[in-house]
Every structure is written in structure tokens, then in C-alpha cells.
Design a protein around this nucleic acid. Structure first.
Lengths: 360, 360
DNA sequence: CGACCTCTTGACTACGTAGTCAGTCGGTGC
DNA sequence: GCACCGACTGACTACGTAGTCAAGAGGTCG
């Protein structure tokens, strides 16, 4: 039999092998594998037995070739192992696998548009059925030119921009605003802001929410300090802030930088929250266990990814999608890093207040 | 021309389309795309122009089908967004893409062997060229039954077990031992251990390194407390430890739990490192910026993934592999959470020492 | 008893790429 | 001038799956 002779060395068994083993046609095996109706129980049984015996696994390349559907989702992320993106990655993968999809990951560490383009080409060539962009930095915007017909889900909330993407994300701007309002309600005159790196939508949203709250209260808008999400950059920003006269409250764009800010303030002789209140963003696992448990804004990443992926799969599979975008609310978690301002300090024009007054 | 008519609605352009456009054969297009020699510059030029004009992307499903090589790496992880696994995921993806491979991610949150088996089948069906297991928990052991001929890289160091896997990882046991030796050298009589969850190789290694150091010094081996890598579990363990009479030093299996431990000790009125020294593991970004900067053991994840992936690609591509396993050294980073034991405390048989002695 | 229908099964083919092998063309050595 | 060789190109086919369509088996209804 030349047919089998040609099936050389050690290629894994294919449907034809199963078919021959079970005494049916390849097409019938295909029917059984795909759970199609109209296969007699007896035949189905025989085929399943043959599959089991030969250890047959459907070849997804062949399947993708013929169906032009890969059951693969492309996940594009900026690649640093930051808290948010990591959480998203896990949530996306879980949702995908539950729906029978596989996730291909592409990281684009540099914001180089060329690299993003290459990543896109990669995904297009793989014939992904959908693309997920996690925490989309502006450098990922070229994804707008995604392969035609491939739906794109961006895990961000962006109410203003009429986009053809699916958009599901935390309502970061409102969350940031709530954080700043909390500080204002405590009596702080104004609130400084340590922002994330430029070029991220979420950086903008946090800054805008902060500005919203200050504007609504008619307060002055201090200069923005900029970090890169890392504790080290937070420390740097905190060191600068320690020199600001009358500083009593800081809203930091993520918890990791907030830890750095707190540490810097402490290093400069200031106490949190006695001298300065600090609010973070994300609610990382360790936030509650800091020396001064961190007041922060919690993002529900599980909810975001689950809602977003549901939307994406509905779109891919042609099911009706009521609303192409959704905002997931954030939750302000008040802990111990915020308190009313120290009266002496708010008035003091000089830096480094509070040194001479260790008692409450 | 029925040929073109059949190419229906909006399938993306294939090589035949490019070939027709350039007036060459499909095979020649294939040669150009794959950079094969023996194509005249003029033809190459024409083909490239046609590719560009039509926006042609090679279909990787078809390519994988015919070559039986997918240029895909399967990445299997336990799925929580823990620090180590997240770092590994990023490193693996970067190395893979640099080598022209794509990464498919499979998370197995539950340790359910059935789920692991399904994940394996998934990867086998995708025809992955290699499999990477990140921080392999015992539940991933069934990966030993990986599809025949598919090399597996485990990102762990496991000198004892003669395995057919590639093994590259930090020498966790030695690192743990160094951490404990550091504490003993400071003068601590013994060191308690807060371990990770059972079923992880790395949990075992940390515990063994700890035991090694104590045994070598002839010290008693305290009971092991067990956490789940989370700060909350560390807090719980720390609360229990606070009641231990004469406690002066703790080695915690990761930084996140260490933060919880420190917080619990503080909550119980103990001071770090005055009353109790604490050492963590991993050197997460915030470790250096804690209220008491954390002494810890740094893992060089970038180095681990880079070495490991190099090994994997060499194996996949049939290049000679000098050594199938490698240990990456760890680095003890001494900060301020460790100090010599407080004399009064080491002697004290009662719990909660140090309360009456806030000075020094 | 015949027309008709449903259920089950298989033959044939497309999908897009790369491997094999044969053929053409121009140049080189003797 | 002829055999030969290398560079270049294309026709044909395999890869493993699912879609299309037809055929056979068995039942139902009038």
C-alpha cells in the first residue's frame, strides 16, 4: 500500500489513519471529531476508539487552513511585567480558553511603531480571529490598521473617541477623580500628581481625573511630576515633592510609584499621612500590607477582561453586540495613607515641615 | 477565468495572486518570500513590488501544514499573575520573537492534572515546536508525556532529577541557603521559614536551602509555616510567628509574603529588624522601597529566560547543545530588614519581646 | 406498491504553502 | 562546435482538514 508507505517516518496520525483503522472514511472521522450530528452511535463509537488507540490529535494548522478561522486570539501588550498588563494577560487567557480559543502573545517593549507594525503582520499572518490590546499605549495606535475584518478589543475606557474598536476598561478618569475628591474632602488645599509615562491613555485619564476634581473645587493645578510606573521613579518624584512648600497631598498614578513616593517622603523626614497624604492606583496585593497601608483605587481586572472578551467573542462569532464599549467602575479603597492635613504644615511656606513636632 | 472567480469575496491575497500579479509562478514567490537563493534580482524586485502592492502576508497555517513546523512555542504557566511567572512570560516572549518564533500561552490555574493534559493536547494539536514550563509546579509534571519529539524547557534548576527536559533556572536552593547563612552570621540562633504552597519545586528548594544552612550550623529546625505566595498569607504566618518565643529571624519564600510578615510583626508590636530580621526572595521592584527596605535574594529572570530559550532553540533546530541544564546564580541583596539579634530578645522565653525597650 | 423523505456515509475537492524534479538559458572548457 | 555546468524558473504534488454533493439505506404516507 503506497499510501501508508509514503506516510513516512514519524508523522503523527491524521484523520485518514483513524479512518482506515475504524473502517470508515476520513470525512466521517471529521464529523465525529467535530461533534456533528447524523453519525450513527455505532460508527461514532468505533471512530472514538480508533482515535483513542492511535492517539490522534486534530491538526489545527490544517483546520485553520481550510476554515480560514484559527481560533486564536492575538494579545498585544507593552511587555513590561507591570501589574495591570500581567493581570490582563491572565484574564484574557482564561476567558479565551474557556471559549475554546488559544492566545498568542506579542510584546512590544519599545514603542517603536515599526515594531508594532511587525507584530501586527505577525498576527495577521497567523490568521488570528481577534486582537486584544492591553493597556493601549499610543504606540499601539497603529493597530487601527489591523487586518481588515479582524475585530480589535482594547482594554481601556475611552468614551470620547469614536473608534471601530471594542472598548472595555475601567473608568479610570472617574476613579482618579474620586481619589482626589477624597483628599479634598479631608481638607487638603490642593493635591499634587505623580503621573505615569507619557503616551499612555491611562496616564492621561488619571491626570484628567485629577484635574477634573481640582477644577471642580476651584483649586490651583500644581505642576505634574512624571514617572515610569516604577518605584524608583516614584522615589525620585517623592524626593522632589519633599521640597515643595506646603505639600500635604499627592495622588500617584500607580501603587508601585506610590510606594517609592512614600519612601522618599519618609527619607526626607516627612511622615505619611501625618505630614503628607498619599493615594495610589491599582490596589496591588501588597498595598494593604505596607507600613502605612496604602489608600488606593482598585481596578477590577477580572471583570474588565471577562466583559471585554465576551464582547470580542460575540463579535467574532457574529452574535449581536448590544454595546461596543463598556466602563467598569473603580473602587476607592481608603486605608491609612490619607488623613486630614496637618494644620501647621498647610500654612507653613517652608519645606520639610513637621520635623519639630513629632507628637500628633 | 474561473480560478479568480472562485477566489471569493474577500479572502486575503495568497501567493498565487502575487504570482499572477508579478507574472511569475507561485513557487517563485515562495522562493522570494523565504529568501531562497537563485532568484534573479529583477524577478525578486518584481515579486516584492507585487507583494507590497497586494499587501500579501504569508499564511502561517498553510506553512505549518506543509512544513510540519509551526515556529510556535507553547508557554505553560500556573496562571496567577505572580511576580516570577510574569517576569518569565515576558522574557520568554522576547527571546522567542527575537528568534522568529511566536508564543502561545496556556494557563492552568487549577492544578488539575486533567486540565494540564488538555493544555498539552491543545499545544500538541497546534504543532508547537517547543514547550516552556514556567516555575513548574508538580501539577505540570504530566508534561513529561509531552508530544514525542517536542523538546521541553523547564525554567527551574533541578540537579538531582535525571530528566529528558531542558532545565535552566536559578539555583534557588543555594540562594536560600545564602540568605539563611547571612542571618546566622549576624548571630541569630535559628531562622524560621515561611514557605510557599506545597507542590512547587521552588517551594521545596527554598525550604531545602534553609534546612541546609541550619543543618550545617547544627541549629534546630523550626516548624515550617506555609503560605500561598500572597501578602495576606504572609500576614497570617507573621501573626503566628509573633507568638513564637525567642523569634529573631525569618526567611520568607517570596517578597510579597515577606511584606505581609513584616506588617504582621509590626502590628503585633515587634520592630523589624530590631526585634526580628526578615529576608524575602525575588527582589521585586518595591522591595527596596519598603518602610524597612527588604533584604532579599534576587533572581535574574532575564538571564534565566535568555539562557533557557537559547538552549531550546538550539535543540529545536538540531544544533548541538553542550549542556542540557544550567544554573543561574542568585544574589543576596542585603538591605535594612536584617540586623544582629536583640540580645534581650533572643534570651527571652516569653512572646512579644521588645515592647518595653523602644530605645536603640 | 410507489413516491417521497430522512438519516447516514463517502467521494471529491479547495485551502495556501513548500519540496521535488525537470526544463530552459547562458556561459565555459576543450 | 559540442558537451557540460550552473543559475534560474515552473509544473506538479503533498500536507490534513472541512465543505459540497451525491448515493444508499430505511422508513412513512397515500
Amino acid at each position: 500500500m503506497p499510501e501508508r508507505a509514503r506516510r513516512g517516518a514519524h508523522r503523527p496520525p491524521a484523520m485518514v489513519d483513524v479512518a482506515q483503522h475504524a473502517g470508515v472514511s476520513q470525512k466521517t472521522v471529521s464529523r465525529v471529531v467535530n461533534g456533528e450530528p447524523n453519525v450513527s452511535p455505532a460508527v461514532r463509537e468505533r471512530v472514538l476508539a480508533a482515535i483513542d488507540e492511535l492517539g490522534f490529535r486534530p491538526n489545527s494548522a490544517a483546520r485553520a487552513l481550510v476554515t480560514a478561522r484559527s481560533r486564536v486570539i492575538g494579545f498585544v501588550s507593552t511587555g513590561s511585567a507591570l501589574y495591570g498588563p500581567s493581570q490582563m494577560a491572565v484574564g484574557v487567557e482564561q476567558a479565551a480558553r474557556a471559549a475554546g480559543y488559544t492566545v498568542v502573545v506579542v510584546h512590544t517593549r519599545s514603542g517603536d511603531p515599526g515594531e508594532v507594525g511587525a507584530a501586527l503582520d505577525e498576527l495577521a499572518g497567523r490568521g488570528v480571529d481577534g486582537i486584544v490590546v492591553s493597556e493601549p499605549a499610543d504606540s499601539l495606535r497603529p493597530l487601527g490598521h489591523a487586518p481588515a475584518g479582524v475585530p480589535v478589543l482594547a482594554l481601556e475606557h475611552r468614551p470620547d473617541e469614536p473608534d471601530d474598536w471594542l472598548l472595555v476598561g475601567a473608568d479610570v478618569r472617574s476613579g482618579a477623580r474620586a481619589a482626589v475628591e477624597h483628599l479634598l474632602e479631608l481638607g487638603h488645599e490642593t493635591v499634587w500628581h505623580v503621573a505615569g509615562p507619557e503616551g499612555w491613555g491611562t496616564t492621561r485619564d488619571r491626570r484628567l481625573g485629577w484635574a477634573d476634581a481640582l477644577a471642580a473645587a476651584g483649586r490651583p493645578l500644581p505642576d505634574v511630576l512624571r514617572g515610569d510606573w516604577s518605584p524608583a521613579s516614584g522615589f525620585e518624584a517623592g524626593s522632589a515633592l519633599a521640597d515643595v512648600p506646603g505639600l500635604t497631598a499627592v495622588f500617584v498614578a500607580n501603587d508601585e510609584m506610590a510606594v517609592g513616593v512614600v519612601r522618599a517622603l519618609e527619607t526626607c523626614g516627612l511622615t505619611v499621612p501625618h505630614d503628607v497624604s498619599v493615594v495610589g492606583f491599582d490596589d496591588v496585593a501588597t498595598a494593604a500590607y505596607q507600613h502605612v497601608p496604602l489608600t488606593t483605587v482598585r481596578q477590577d481586572f477580572a471583570e474588565i477582561t471577562s466583559q471585554g472578551m465576551a464582547l470580542l467573542f460575540a463579535t467574532i462569532e457574529g452574535r449581536p453586540v448590544p454595546e461596543r464599549r463598556a466602563a467598569v467602575p473603580l473602587q476607592l479603597v481608603v486605608r491609612e495613607s490619607t488623613a486630614p492635613p496637618h494644620p501647621a504644615r498647610a500654612a507653613a511656606p517652608g519645606g520639610r515641615g513637621g520635623e519639630g513636632d513629632p507628637t500628633t
